[in-house]
C-alpha cells in the first residue's frame, strides 16, 4: 500500500508540469497583442508598451516565460493581470463560489444518482428501473443550457420555489444551479451504478455467497455492492474535477460570479495570467480529486494495492 501511494504521489509531478505548460503554451499562442488589446483604440507610447512587455516578460521565449511563471507560483505568487489586479485575489474571491456550487452539485449527483442506480439495479425490469432508464436518457440528451432555462422558468418563475439567478439569497441560491450542473453527471452515475450492480449480481462470487447460506441483504450489501462501486468511484472522482471546471455555462445561465465567468471574460480580454492562474488552480483540484479516487480505489480493490 505504501509503495502504491508513493508511486501515485510521484506521478503528480509530471502531470502538474505537463498540464500547466500546455495551458501556458496555449494562452501564449493566442493570436493578437494583449498590450494593444489593453489600450483599445488609443495608441500607447512606445516606451509604455516596452515597459509593460518587460514587466510581464512578454519578450522572453516561451520556456523562459513559463519558468518565471512557475517560479512565482512556488512563492505563492500567481502574478498580476494586465490591469493590475492580483490573480490570487481574483481566485480568493471567485473560487469559493465555484467550489460551493460544484460540491453541492456533486452531493446531489452522489446521493440521488447512486440511490437511483442501486434501486434500479436491484429491481431490474421493474417500473422504477424503466423510469430511471428513460429519465436519465432524457437528461443526457438535452443540452445543459436548455435544461437550465427550463429549470429557471418552471421552478423559479412559474412556481417560485427557488431563486431564479444570482446569489442574493444565500445558500438557497445555489440549489437550482447545482441541480442543473449536476444533472448530466447524475444521469451517468445512476446508469453506471445500475449496470455495474446488475453485472455483479450475476457474478460467480455472488452465487457462492448465496450457496454459503448468506442472507440476501448480506449477499447484496457486502458482496455485490463493494465490487459494483469500483467503477462508480472512478467516474465520480474524475467528475468532481469536471464539475468545478465545467461550471462555465451554468454560471453564465444563473449569473453566478464564479471562476467560470471570470475565465470566460479573461479569455476574451487575452488576460493570460488570469486564465493560466485559474486553470492551474483547476488542474490542482483535478489532481487532488483523482489522487483521492486512486486511494479510495486501492482501498476498495486489493488487486490494485498489490500490483
Amino acid at each position: 500500500m505504501a509503495r502504491y501511494l508513493a508511486r501515485r504521489l510521484l506521478q503528480i509531478i509530471p502531470v502538474f508540469f505537463g498540464a500547466t505548460f500546455l495551458i501556458y503554451a496555449a494562452v501564449y499562442s493566442i493570436p493578437g497583442d494583449p498590450i494593444r488589446a489593453l489600450a483599445g483604440d488609443r495608441p500607447l507610447p512606445a516606451s509604455t508598451i516596452e515597459a509593460l512587455r518587460d514587466e510581464f516578460n512578454l519578450d522572453d521565449p516561451l520556456p523562459v516565460q513559463y519558468a518565471k511563471y512557475i517560479a512565482g507560483l512556488f512563492r505563492g505568487d500567481f502574478g498580476q493581470s494586465f490591469r493590475g489586479r492580483e490573480v490570487s485575489e481574483i481566485l480568493r474571491q471567485r473560487f469559493p463560489v465555484t467550489i460551493r456550487l460544484g460540491l453541492l452539485a456533486f452531493a446531489i449527483e452522489v446521493v440521488i444518482g447512486l440511490l437511483a442506480g442501486l434501486l434500479a439495479g436491484l429491481r431490474r425490469g421493474s417500473f422504477l428501473d424503466n423510469l430511471v432508464l428513460v429519465s436519465t436518457t432524457f437528461v443526457i440528451s438535452i443540452p445543459i443550457f436548455v435544461l437550465g432555462f427550463v429549470a429557471q422558468l418552471v421552478l423559479g418563475v412559474r412556481f417560485g420555489l427557488l431563486p431564479v439567478a444570482g446569489l442574493r439569497e444565500g445558500w438557497v441560491s445555489y440549489v437550482l444551479p447545482a441541480m442543473v450542473l449536476g444533472s448530466v453527471s447524475l444521469a451517468y452515475a445512476a446508469r453506471l451504478t445500475r449496470t455495474s450492480l446488475v453485472e455483479n449480481l450475476r457474478a460467480d462470487y455472488v452465487r457462492t455467497a448465496t450457496a454459503k447460506g448468506m442472507p440476501r441483504r448480506r449477499v447484496v450489501g457486502r458482496h455485490a455492492l463493494r465490487n459494483s462501486l469500483i467503477p462508480v468511484v472512478t467516474f465520480l472522482g474524475v467528475d468532481l474535477g469536471a464539475l468545478m471546471g465545467g461550471a462555465i455555462i451554468t454560471e453564465g445561465i444563473f449569473n453566478i460570479p464564479g471562476i467560470g465567468r471570470e475565465v470566460f471574460v479573461a479569455v476574451r480580454g487575452q488576460e493570460g495570467t488570469i486564465v493560466v492562474g485559474i486553470v492551474t488552480a483547476l488542474v490542482m483540484i483535478f489532481i487532488f480529486s483523482t489522487l483521492l479516487v486512486d486511494i479510495l480505489y486501492a482501498f476498495l480493490d486489493p488487486r490494485i494495492r498489490y500490483e
Binding site: 460467480d204 457462492t208 450457496a211 465490487n227 480493490d301
Partner: peptide
C-alpha cells in the same frame, strides 16, 4: 452452507476478489 455445501468450478471467479 451448513448441511449442504457447494464447491464451484472456477475458484478465481467464485471467490470474492475484494
Amino acid at each position: 452452507g451448513q448441511q449442504i455445501a457447494m464447491i464451484f468450478q472456477d475458484a478465481l471467479t467464485a471467490l470474492n476478489p475484494v
